[in-house]
């Protein structure tokens, strides 16, 4: 009698344990496509919905996280890829993945229509761009007025002593945006000039954040008057009512793009190619334009509310290859020079 109930308990326990481990494992139907992405959380559903209007047979399983984490994930899964497609990840990251042989080159239908800037230079492109993600300065007018600051017009303006302690930028070692800024400065001013500029900037920086959108959010919240971040984030905060001005420095601004690629070794190549084909259509680009002022398909972009208007002209001719191939070196130099802000007095 007792034995029976013991066995029963044991059986229930086993079932519970098995179902617990099994339950969150995603079961993939033939048309399920695992898509890794760093697109803003709020846009995911809209993108999938618009895509499904044309391809209802492909079901997107989003795996979303910040750029750094998605990249780390893809690299970690190098020998055991879990993703079929990457849709909406920084080109800099995709270059890194490409150099590890993780991407499956594919020339999507209609790629000729895209701005060349937005297509990988390989014979068969490994990735295609979607939209640009442009650096800019978020300037809190209320807090600036409290501190008697004048709005900066150029990057070099930020070196003025009046901004001392009023600047925040992302740490390039943990933020893609931060690296974008650093690599753009090195391209604008040349290597030596770039580091010299950053030496000066470092003196004025209050602290470096881990995330790229945080400086702008902090500026929006008045935690700091000036945050070096990217235009998209600034526009969003502005829309929420933050007293922000988005400044595009005259020297030009660094940018990165969100791009799409197929992961080598996917067993759903056809569906993956369908998605990539669609991702560069005019319709898709119009969809990107809802959040981003600069998109890959020429002539599609309409001005986006709260976005600075001259943005496209100010984008530098970004050498992604330079950025990718010198990333390690740039980051360790940066770390050596600035990554102990905690005790500047000791220097």
């Amino acid at each position: 009698m007792f034995k029976k109930s013991f066995m029963k308990t044991a059986a229930v326990g086993c079932i519970a344990a098995v179902s617990m481990i099994g339950m969150s494992q995603s079961t993939l139907a033939a048309t399920d496509l695992v898509v890794y992405s760093a697109i803003e959380a709020e846009d995911l559903a809209r993108y999938a919905k618009t895509f499904n209007e044309d391809h209802p047979d492909i079901n997107i399983k989003w795996v979303r996280d910040s750029t750094g984490i998605v990249t780390a994930k893809l690299l970690a899964e190098k020998d055991n890829p879990q993703a079929d497609v990457v849709w909406g990840l920084a080109a800099t990251s995709l270059l890194l993945l490409k150099s590890e042989g993780l991407l499956d080159p594919y020339k999507p239908k209609g790629v000729e229509a895209l701005d060349k800037k937005f297509v990988d230079k390989g014979d068969v492109p490994s990735w295609v761009g979607m939209d640009a993600w442009v650096a800019s300065i978020c300037y809190n007018t209320v807090e600036a007025a409290k501190n008697n600051l004048t709005p900066p017009k150029t990057w070099k303006d930020l070196l003025k002593p009046e901004y001392k302690g009023h600047l925040i930028m992302p740490n390039p070692n943990s933020s893609g945006t931060g690296f974008l800024d650093v690599s753009s400065w090195l391209q604008i001013y040349g290597e030596d000039g770039g580091w010299e500029f950053m030496d000066g900037l470092h003196e004025n920086i209050s602290r470096y954040t881990h995330s790229g959108s945080k400086p702008c959010k902090l500026a929006a919240a008045g935690e700091i008057p000036i945050g070096i971040s990217f235009a998209f984030r600034g526009a969003k905060s502005k829309a929420k009512g933050a007293p922000l001005e988005i400044i595009v420095p005259e020297e030009g601004v660094g940018w990165d793009m969100e791009a799409t690629a197929i992961i080598a070794g996917t067993d759903k190549l056809k569906a993956a190619q369908t998605l990539v084909d669609w991702s560069i259509t005019k319709k898709a680009n119009e969809m990107y334009n809802i959040g981003y002022a600069v998109v890959a398909y020429p002539g599609v972009a309409k001005p986006v509310k709260f976005f600075p208007e001259n943005l496209l002209d100010k984008m530098i001719d970004n050498d992604f290859e330079f950025a990718a191939n010198n990333r390690k070196r740039i980051l360790s130099t940066w770390q050596e020079r600035y990554d102990s802000k905690s005790d500047p007095k000791k220097k």
Binding site: G68, T71, A72, L96, N173, S174, H210, S342
Partner: peptide, 25 residues
């Protein structure tokens, strides 16, 4: 330290920065 540490580096945050920020496992 991740939230309030600012530029003050601590070991546990370094692990995160190395892995997530720089993919240097």
């Amino acid at each position: 330290p991740k939230v309030i540490g600012g530029q003050y580096n601590m070991l546990a945050v370094d692990i995160y920065k190395q892995v997530i920020g720089q993919q240097n496992f």
